[in-house]
Write a protein that binds this DNA or RNA. Structure first.
Lengths: 202, 202
DNA sequence: TCATTTTTTGAGTGATCCGAAAACAATTCT
DNA sequence: AGAATTGTTTTCGGATCACTCAAAAAATGA
C-alpha cells in the first residue's frame, strides 16, 4: 500500500521529461507553427505515433511544454511577492529576465513572449492560450505594485495599470532584443535604465 | 518620349498594390509561417500561379509587403531627426507607435515586430531580414540620441546604447501588449510612463 | 491578319502536414 | 501459461505545403 505499484503495460522506452524538454526547446526557438510534429519526434528520438500516445496531440504537447518552461521559474516572477519593496522586486525581475533571455545554451528571448505570438488561423487557440500566460505574469506584477501603493511605497497619483504595462513591455521588449542578438550586458544595462522610470515619492 | 508607352502583353487584371496590401495584412496578422500561399492568393482574388508571376515567390512577396508596411511611415521614426529635441522626438515616436499598434481596422501590434520573430528552420533568412529591419529602426533612434548628447541635451554620463535599447524595447513591448488586447489609451498612458526614464541633465 | 508578349487559369509536381490504424513487443496480473 | 494492458514501429490517409507547367486569353506592333 505504501509503495506505488508499477504500471501495467510495456514500459516507456524514452524519458518523458527529457522529450518534453526537447519539445520546449524547439517550440521556443521556432514557434508553434515553425515546428512540424515529425521534427519534434525525430529530435525526441521516437516515432510520431509514440509522441501522440505520450502527449495526445501537437497542441497538448505545446501546452505541456510551455508549462514546463514556466515551471523552471527563471523569470523571477514568483519572488516578486517576497521582495522587501516593489521597486527592488521589479528591478530583480528585470535583471533575472535579462539573464534568462541570454542563456548561452538556450534559445534567446522568452518562450512565452516569442513562441506563439502570431499563428495560423486554425491555431488561434494557441495564440490565445499563450497570451493568457503573458497576462498572468503581468497580473503578478500588477498585484505587487498595487500592494506597494497601498503600503505607501508609491504615491496615490501613480497608475498601477500604467506602471504594470510599462514593465511588462520592457520585459517583452527585452525578449525581442535578445532574439535580435543583444548580449546579456546590454540587456542588464537597459534594465537599469528602465528603472529610472520608477516614480519618486512626493 | 514624355508619356510612357503602354506595356506590351496582356494587362494585369488585378491591382498589384491592392494585392500587396492584402498580403501585408495577412502576414501582419498571422506571421510568415502562418499564411500559406493558397490563402494569400485567395484573399487577393487570383490564382497562385498569378501570384508567382507578379511577385516571384512567397519570400519575395513578404519582403515587398514588409517594405510596403514601412513605407506607410506610421511609426514616426523618420520625424525623429526633424524634432527640436530628442526627448520630444522619442516621446512623439512612442505615442505614434501606440496609435499605430491599435488602429481599429488593422491587425494589432507592429508587423515588423511580431510578423516573423520566430520561423521554421528553412525560413531562417526571413527571421534575419526582419530582425535587420528592427535594427535599422533602432539605429535611427540611436543616431538621434547620440546627436542629443553631442548637443548637450543629454549628459556625458548617459549611455546612448542603453537608452536606445530601452526605447526600442518599449516599442516592441507595446507591440506585444497590443497583440494581447491592450487598448490605445493604455498604451498611450504607458508611453508617457516610459518617458519618466529620460535622464535629467545635471 | 498574324506574330509577339504578357497574364490568366486549371491541373499537377513531389514533399510535407497532422494524425490514425494495425501489427508487434514488453511488461503485469491471474 | 495465458489474458490484459500499454508502448513500439511501420504504414498509410487525406489534406495541404510551396511551386510549376501548359494552354488559353488579351493586349500590342507590324
Amino acid at each position: 500500500m505504501t509503495d506505488s505499484q508499477r504500471p501495467r503495460g510495456r514500459p516507456r522506452a524514452f524519458d518523458r521529461d527529457e522529450a518534453l524538454k526537447t519539445a520546449m526547446l524547439l517550440f521556443w526557438r521556432h514557434g508553434y507553427d515553425g515546428v512540424p510534429v515529425a521534427q519534434l519526434a525525430t529530435a525526441m528520438g521516437i516515432a510520431p505515433a509514440s509522441l501522440y500516445v505520450a502527449f495526445g496531440s501537437k497542441e497538448a504537447l505545446y501546452r505541456e511544454a510551455v508549462r514546463f518552461y514556466l515551471s523552471l521559474g527563471r523569470l523571477g516572477i514568483e519572488r516578486l511577492q517576497e521582495s522587501a519593496s516593489a521597486k527592488e522586486g521589479v528591478h530583480a525581475m528585470l535583471r533575472s529576465a535579462a539573464k534568462a533571455f541570454t542563456q548561452p545554451d538556450l534559445p534567446p528571448g522568452c518562450m512565452v513572449g516569442v513562441g506563439a505570438l502570431r499563428c495560423a488561423g486554425e491555431n488561434r487557440v494557441i495564440e490565445e492560450a499563450t497570451a493568457e500566460l503573458r497576462r498572468l505574469s503581468a497580473k503578478a506584477v500588477h498585484l505587487r505594485i498595487e500592494r506597494a501603493r497601498r503600503e505607501g511605497e508609491l504615491g496615490k497619483d501613480v497608475s498601477p495599470q500604467a506602471l504594470t504595462d510599462f514593465f511588462s513591455a520592457v520585459v517583452e521588449g527585452m525578449s525581442v532584443l535578445a532574439c535580435d542578438g543583444a548580449c546579456r550586458e546590454r540587456l542588464l544595462h537597459m534594465a537599469d535604465t528602465a528603472m529610472a522610470a520608477w516614480p519618486v515619492v512626493d
